Amino acid sequence: MSRAVRYRRFGGPEVLELQEIPEPHAAPDEVRVRVTAAGLNPMDWQITSRPDMAAGFGITLPAGFGSDFAGVVDEVGAEAAGFAVGDRVYGAAIGRSVADFVLIRPSAATLFPTPEGVGDEVAGTLPVSGLTACAALDAIGLRAGETVLIGGAAGGVGLFAVQLAKLAGARVLGTASEGTFGFLRGLGAEPVAYGPGLADRVRALAPEGITAAADLFGREAAEAALELGVAPERISVVADGPAPPPGVRKTGALAAGPGAMERIADAVRAGGITVPIAATYPVERIREAVATQAERHVHGKIVIAL
Rank of each mutant, 00 (worst) to 15 (best):
R269D: 14
N41T: 00
P282T: 05
L228P: 07
L173T: 05
V238H: 01
G86C: 08
K250N: 13
T147S: 09
A224F: 07
D29W: 14
F112V: 03
V298F: 02
P244I: 12
A176M: 10
G247R: 15
G66C: 06
R34A: 14
A199L: 10
A225N: 04
D240T: 05
T36H: 09
A212L: 10
R201Y: 11
A256M: 12
A222G: 15
G300K: 12
R287C: 03
V303Y: 05
T292A: 13
E178V: 10
V128D: 02
G259C: 15
V238T: 03
L40T: 07
A108D: 14
P13G: 00
L61Y: 08
Y281I: 10
V303I: 15
P258R: 13
G58I: 09
F65W: 01
R9W: 00
P244F: 05
R6V: 02
V35N: 14
R8I: 05
A99S: 11
I59Q: 07
G56N: 13
A63D: 07
E146N: 09
S67A: 08
F10Q: 02
L216D: 02
R234D: 08
L126C: 11
G11S: 06
A270H: 10
F69N: 08
V85C: 12
A161Y: 02
S177T: 12
M261L: 15
R88W: 03
L137E: 05
Y194L: 00
D266T: 14
G229I: 06
L149H: 00
R32F: 15
F183P: 09
A165Q: 00
R32P: 14
F83A: 11
R6N: 13
G152M: 00
L187V: 06
P106C: 13
G82N: 15
I302R: 04
T175D: 00
P13R: 04
D138C: 04
L103F: 15
M1S: 11
Y90P: 12
P127C: 11
G71V: 15
Y194V: 00
G151I: 00
R34L: 15
D74Q: 13
S236P: 11
V157R: 02
R269P: 13
F83C: 09
T60W: 10
A222F: 11
G117T: 10
C134P: 07
T60I: 14
R263F: 09
V148D: 02
G64P: 15
I59R: 06
A305V: 15
V73I: 14
L16G: 01
M53P: 06
E208H: 01
R8N: 08
A212W: 02
V192K: 03
A168E: 07
T36N: 04
L137P: 10
Y281G: 15
T292D: 04
L205K: 09
S177Q: 03
D120P: 12
S129E: 12
Y194I: 01
G124V: 06
G152C: 04
P207H: 05
A63P: 09
T36R: 08
A256N: 13
E284L: 11
A54D: 10
V128A: 02
V98A: 04
V73A: 14
H299I: 07
P24G: 06
P245C: 12
P115R: 07
E233W: 15
L228K: 03
V31R: 03
I264D: 01
G156W: 02
V31G: 12
I235G: 04
G119N: 14
G71K: 03
I140D: 11
A265V: 08
T175E: 08
E233C: 13
V238L: 05
G155R: 00
